[in-house]
Nucleic acid binder design. Structure first.
Lengths: 93, 93
DNA sequence: AAAATATATTGACAAACTTCTATATGTAAT
DNA sequence: ATTACATATAGAAGTTTGTCAATATATTTT
């Protein structure tokens, strides 16, 4: 494994909050803008923004700005990193 | 997915702390007792005990008591659950 | 029974995290 | 230019988490 403990923990921060899990679920069927995520969740706009930042930092979510909209989607690459770490723990690497 | 957001977050709690990641690394090459984990880490015994409880709760680690020793090991079953969730996010389920 | 050892629990404190309101920034429409 | 809309940032409050020292519990050894 090429990552240290801090970096690994940062990746998985994406998955250890209830609301972030909910956001990830919403992104499963494809890219969504922040406003659509917001209306599907029971949190304020700044709270969503904060979680999106955490998700971007973790690398599990991609962001794409288009005009005044911010579009978010699940990052295959990010998921693969997480997956690789779990494989590593399974002794499969 | 048969798990709710809270349960899913609980599983991944295992991976979102630096020290817990370190503990998991130590368990990769097999079961270890708490005392051996302790001497490999830079934390006090109660802190280790606290993290082991979190890891047990997450289902990622198994515990086995033998005399006065507590032996911990990585749970294949727990890892599989985590893995399945990530597969799910990838749209592979 | 007493001492020694391994681990867990309690309680306190500090750091980190989640959430909010208020406000700022950036973009598009009038 | 002004207004409207989408998102981000700042700052504060409350909550959770990580950590430790002190103590309790459980097991083994003497």
């Amino acid at each position: 494994m090429e990552l240290n403990e801090k970096q690994t923990a940062a990746i998985f921060k994406a998955f250890c909050d209830e609301n972030r899990i909910k956001i990830l679920q919403l992104l499963i069927d494809g890219e969504k803008c922040a406003c659509r995520l917001l209306e599907a969740m029971n949190i304020t706009q700044p709270t969503l923004s904060h979680h999106m930042k955490t998700l971007l930092d973790s690398g599990i979510v991609n962001g794409r700005k288009e005009g005044k909209w911010m579009h978010y989607s699940i990052s295959e690459e990010g998921l693969e990193k997480a997956q690789k770490y779990i494989d590593y723990l399974k002794g499969e690497v």
